[in-house]
Design a protein around this nucleic acid. Sequence first.
RNA 1: GCCCUAGUGGCUUAGGCGGUAGAGCGAUGCCUUGGUAAGGCAUAGGUCGGGGGUUCGAAUCCCCCCUGGGGCUCCA
Length: 607
Amino acid sequence: MRILLIHSDYLRYKTKSKTKIAEEIEDKKKSGEFENALVVFTAVEKEDELNTDEIVRSAVSEIINVSDQVKPDKVVIYPYAHLSSSLGSPQAAKKVLMEMESKLKENGLNASRIPFGWYKSFEISCKGHPLSELSRTITIKPEEKEKAAEEPSKWYILSKGELLDIETFKFESEDLKKLTDYELGKLESTGEEPPHIKLMREKSFADYEPSADVGHLRWYPKGRLIRDLLSDYVYNLVTEYGAMPVETPIMYDLADDAIRVHADKFGERQYRMGTKKDLMLRYACCFGAFRVLSDSFLTWKNLPVGIYELSTYSFRLEKKGEVVGLKRLRGFTMPDLHTVCGDMIQAMEEFNKQISMCAKTGEDFKINYEVIFRATADFFEENKEWMFQSAQKIGKPVLLEILPRRKHYWISKMDFAAIDYLGRPIENPTIQIDVESGERFGITYINENEEEEYPIILHCSPTGSIERVICSLLEKTAVEIDEKPPILPTWLSPTQIRLIPIAERHMDFATSLAEDLKASNIRVDVDDRHETVGKKIRNSATEWVPYTIVIGDKELESDKFMVNIRETREKELFNKDELTSKIQKEVMGMPFRPLPLPMNLSRRVNF
RNA sequence: GCCCUAGUGGCUUAGGCGGUAGAGCGAUGCCUUGGUAAGGCAUAGGUCGGGGGUUCGAAUCCCCCCUGGGGCUCCA
């Protein structure tokens, strides 16, 4: 905020005509005269919107400070846009100016405010003494940004319906111990690079795009395929659960009050667009889902109702130093399910169903999740029974955080984290009980008594961001490197079977075998390059192909072939049908997409 | 964002206390038609991350910026 303070003999003004953003005023405010007034010309700036309370407080204290020195009869706040080249939104400015006026009055000053958004003529007579002209730039002081004396959370282990002390708890799970240490700030870092970064590039899944902003990736065909398969997976999962997929815009106008207030909770990590309209890129699908829901006509018969969207992309302006590989990005893809529930009982029931859904993703991906259950102290006291039961659904001890008071929109949430190679959590699925957004976004439903009511909304991401799922899968290969060769689950492997013809005369057979396997929905390719068998085998291994078959004279004559099985490092004899059914069994229930690459390796681009 | 550290062909890198760079993989071509983790030979490919400065001359010294990695902090 910029202010120009003039200690005047008098100020006279008169409104001339309205602008689009003019506030409605009574006739008596259309002109006015103030004698011996400290006139505060004020411009509210964009950055002020991040913490308007703090800005108002600082501005008022500055004005009081000056007023104490020059001792005017009156203080007049005069909206004056021309002091800044980076103005805040008119809505925010009006709010700030009004709050300044009332705060000054509370402090015993005779304060007035000149109407906002009008063209005005004015006449001012400056007293001309040394303190009669002052200007100030008022900014949010970072160290004052709340923080102050925030009460710490209480931490427990919740196991078999018992609250246990973390200090004395005997951890059976190495991963839960690591998660607990990390959350309590006890984990020592090794200074190593997480292995998934090298892997994602080496395998041509994804890479950085230096010409974009930090934390935005380019995805190559293999990576794109994996993303698509995971997207299909979540889509199937949530539609099976009963949610309805929608798609909403990726940017929102901060002039909308509900959107601005919700966004403010996100603080400085908002990704703003520098356009004339003050637009913010979404950091999740909440905005879109809430707008859809608030414009829908909901009745108790509809509830619970789920709206699902895969946010390609969500944007968060994470600090530069926090952005890392697939783990923390500024642009990422998150499955986002919002479930409208009529009351807390229904919300709790749905929450439990969603726990099952989140847990299932861990089983399907073969990723071990450790769980943090969180709640405000009030919620925990009132719903102990439910929390204990819900934690039981995890089937192992969970970490419990009790927050002294609500500081976000949720009163309880459950976070599922995979543990990476360096022992740090990768936050994946999450479920939250949101008690604020219904009212804020004007989402209502008609209850059984024909009354309008605000619902409770569950937020759920059954897998966490797609990028983090891939991150977890890659990290897992590094964790297990001593036990087995690194590999992706077959349903996610870009190439599922690689055929290696030995000589040109084996090409026709290899190609026709490949076509047959392809017809059974198997991603198969043929290494038709003029290289030695040894080299092609090696190549297939470095690409993590789960099944590799060498095609030579023997295979032309028999209907069996020796299959190299990567996972077990074993060779096994199969015929075509046996192999097909083995793979089909392996990928059962998982989505399929065809190979998005040329079948012949000689035709492939090296990314 | 702050602190530390790095940036040399598509990838991995050698070399540099000032005189415009060398390799391996990969790519391409030729030879080899080969049976389970790198066959041989040859060729192409680099204004040494970008910009500015100092200098007769900068990949090398100085400044700024960009990008990566680590740490702090943060994480709905």
